[in-house]
Nucleic acid binder design. Sequence first.
DNA 1: GTGAAAGCGCTAACAC
DNA 2: GTGTTAGCGCTTTCAC
Lengths: 338, 338
Amino acid sequence: MSASRPTILDVASRAGVSKSLVSLALSGSDKVSDASRQRIERAAQELGYRPNAAARSLAAKKSRTLGVLVLDLHNPVFAEILDGVQTEVRQHGFTTMLVSGGDDPALERADIDTLQQFQIEGLILISHRLTEAMLREVAGEIPTVTVTRDDIDIPRMDMVCNDDVEGGRIAVDHLVSLGHRRIVCLSGGDNPVSHSRARGYLEAMAAHGLSDHAQIVSGGLTDTAGYRAAKEALEFSPTAFFVANDIGAMGAIAAVEEAGFDVPGDISVIGYDGIRLAGLRSVNLTTVAQPLAELGRLAATRLLERLEKPARPAHHDQVSSQLVVRGTTGPANPSPTA
Amino acid sequence: MSASRPTILDVASRAGVSKSLVSLALSGSDKVSDASRQRIERAAQELGYRPNAAARSLAAKKSRTLGVLVLDLHNPVFAEILDGVQTEVRQHGFTTMLVSGGDDPALERADIDTLQQFQIEGLILISHRLTEAMLREVAGEIPTVTVTRDDIDIPRMDMVCNDDVEGGRIAVDHLVSLGHRRIVCLSGGDNPVSHSRARGYLEAMAAHGLSDHAQIVSGGLTDTAGYRAAKEALEFSPTAFFVANDIGAMGAIAAVEEAGFDVPGDISVIGYDGIRLAGLRSVNLTTVAQPLAELGRLAATRLLERLEKPARPAHHDQVSSQLVVRGTTGPANPSPTA
DNA sequence: GTGAAAGCGCTAACAC
DNA sequence: GTGTTAGCGCTTTCAC
C-alpha cells in the first residue's frame, strides 16, 4: 500500500498540464488537444489514478449514482428485477447503490438515509414497508420511483407496477377452468401487492358466482409464511390455493404435502411472480408471471427521465402478467383425502 | 423540493454557534457544553439536516463504508451470507455498499473500481471471478477479505472459507453409507470452491476404493448448469449425484425427474450450501450445509479488525460444514430404470 | 468550550 | 486549447 492514492494533481504534473485540463480530458470533453489527452491518459494509467467519487460529487453537486432499496434479498424475484434496473442504469453511465435489510419501516427509512448521505440523485424503491408519511418525505426530497407499490399517489413520484388485480383474476380463472370451487387465497399480508392480488381473487370469485367460497388467509411473502398460512388454511378443505407469491407457494406446497395431500392431485397450487426457480422441473410451479426484468428496466428509465425533467407529471406504468401453467395445478379433485 | 439541503452552516447559524462546534457536537465529542449540544441538536432536527457523506469522507479521509461484491444475487446463498455481514458491520457503525452483476472478471473489476471511487475502507469479496493478478492488485490497494475463495494466498489479505474438501468427503461418505457406488460429481466448474469440493469427492471415493467409479462432469453454479450437467451425466448410469451447490442440485433433480427417474428411488442427489430453500418440504434437499451467516459475520469481523491493524498477518479462517439429511438421498437402487 | 482557518480532491466558470 | 480561481460541505488543528 503506497503513500496515498494519486490525485488529479499528480496526474496533471506528470502529464505536464494543469489539473483542470486533466479534469476536462478525463470527462471526455472535446476541447482538449489529442496530444494532451494522450499524455494525460498515459499519466493516469501509469499512476493507477482513480477518481475520488466523493470529491467529484461534492464539486459537481451530482453523484451519477442511483440508490436502490430492496425488500428482501432472499427472494430471487428482486434479483430478477434488479437485472433490469442494472442493465438500463449502466447504459446511462450511472452507478447503482444497493441496500436492503431493515425489517421494519424505521430501519428501512434509515437505509434510505444512508443512500441520501451518499448524494444519490434518484431512488428506486422495490419495497413497500415505508409508511405513507415516510414515503412522502422521501419522495419530496429526492426523485423517487416505486416498483411494485401503487397504493400511494404522490405528485412527482413515478410508479411502475404489475397489474396485480388482473393477475389475481388470471389465477382464479385458471383454477376455475379446472373445475375448482373451494379456492383459498393465501395472501401475502398487509401490503399493497398482496392487497391487489387478493382483490383480484375476490373479484374473480364473485364473477364466477363463487363468493360464498371465497376465503382469504393472511400470511406473508416468505416461504415460511406460505407454509404456515397453508397449514392453517387446510381446515377449509380447499381444492386449490392461490398464493401471493412464488416463494410463498413453495412453502405452501411443502405444507400441503406434509399433511399427506398430493399436489396437484388433491390440491392445486398457483403462485405469483414467475421467478426462474419456479420453472425448475423439481418445483414446476404454475404461476402468474410478471415481466420482472422489464419492471426493473422501466423503473430505471422513468427515474432517468425524471432526472432530466424533474417537474414532469408522474408516470404510472402498469405491465401485465401472464399465466404460466406448469405442474402444480390440475383438475379439481372433489374430495381430497389425506 | 426546497432550495437545497441544509448544511452544517445552516445548523450553525440557527443554533448561533460556529460550524466547527456543530461538527464536534454531531460527532459526539465531549468538549461541547450540554447547552450548546442541545441547541445544535434541536437546530439540526428542525432543519432536517443530514450530513453529506461525500464531504465528510473527503475531509476526514475515511468513509466508514465497506464494499461488498457478490457473485450472483440470484442465488439465495449470498443473501444468507450477507445477513451475517450486515449484522456485524452495522454494529460497528459502518455502512455497506453492495455491488454485483458483472459476469466476467473485467466487469467485476469495474464493479470494484466503482466501490473504490466511493472511498470504501475495506472490501469483502464473496465471489471468485477475479483473476489472480486482479486480486493482487485490489488487495494491494485496499484491505480485502475473500469469502468462499482460498486459492490465492496474498500477504495481508484475510480469507474466510468453508472446508470444502471436507464437505465433499462428507457428501460422498453419506452416499456410500447408503450403498451407492456409481456416484457422479456434478462440479460447479472452474473455480476454487468447486475444485475443493470435487477434490473432497475424489479423495473420499479413493478412500472407499471407488476410484474406478469416480466421474466428474463439469457444469456451473446455477440451476440451469446443474440441469445440463445432470442430463449429460445420466449416461454414466449413476445411482447418485453429488452436486456442487444447492441451486445446481435443484436443477439436477429436475433433469433426473424429466428423464423419468425417481429421486431418491432411482437416483439420490445431495447438494451443498444449506440454503433455507433447500429445507422446504417441496425441495427437501439433502445437503452439506455451511454456516452461512457465520461466514459473513466472520468476514466482516476480520475486515474490521484489519482496519484497526492494517499490517497484521493474514487470517485464514475455515469453518466446517454439516451434513443435513433430507429427502433426496436414499438407499442405492442397483438398477434404476427409466 | 469555542471559533477561525486550512484544506480534502474535484468541477466549472472565467480568463487568456 | 489551456491555466487560474473559486468553491462544494465537512473535519481538524490551533489559538483564544
